[in-house]
Design a protein around this nucleic acid. Structure first.
Lengths: 102, 102
DNA sequence: GAACTCTATCGACGTTCGTCGATAATCGAT
DNA sequence: ATCGATTATCGACGAACGTCGATAGAGTTC
């Protein structure tokens, strides 16, 4: 968990963000993070194994969606709301609306 | 092109829409359709072959994003804006904003 | 009806994806 | 120092994806 690389949002094309959100598991993660809090990997249970969830989190991070900080043992993560909103204005709020509806 | 099946938007989960938009070619198609007009397959050139484009259009149709009508020889298509907006309020307008920015 | 245009489908191919289990590393608690 | 919890990485596997070229059908035009 050492070298946690977070790409600049300016490097992320829209289709990559869409692709990252195009999976039930990853969308579920994002939905949890939309409350703005910092969450830990172990609190999630979306019916996939631990290594699979870790994999999905990595994809969300590399798509610029999730901020991922190791703290002690745990995998802390949160939405990169401000940066996402600067790059894709209104998109985070839109996600909030859409995921509530589901 | 006979049996053009269009799924009900109520059957489409959000992650499927996201997945459909998670490809450069398909996003480019949608971007063109955002003007609200009816477009024809042959007017697009996104650097992929004809069969590939046809494939992508099918995916967009099956994701509920595109209305696809055969008329004579041609493959006419348009955004299912109203239905999308009913199912995912604000999303079409959001797409308009985001794709203009790119 | 012959030639041409537009499109869908097919089969193929390599690539990416989603998943798992096993392993190892790190940390906290005992 | 040991145990338990949390996580990242690895190797594997089948499934899905993106692409192509070839083919065939349906319309249009001549």
């Amino acid at each position: 968990m050492r070298t946690v690389f977070h790409p600049a949002l300016s490097d992320i094309p829209l289709h990559k963000v869409m692709h990252a959100l195009g999976s039930p598991v990853r969308l579920a993660v994002v939905k949890e993070l939309l409350d703005g809090d910092v969450h830990q990997g172990s609190e999630f249970d979306f019916g996939v194994g631990q290594s699979t969830l870790s994999h999905h989190v990595k994809i969300l991070r590399e798509a610029g969606i999730v901020q991922n900080d190791p703290e002690g043992n745990r995998c802390l993560m949160s939405l990169r709301s401000a940066e996402l909103d600067a790059r894709f204005p209104g998109f985070v709020e839109q996600l909030r609306v859409l995921t509530v509806a589901e």
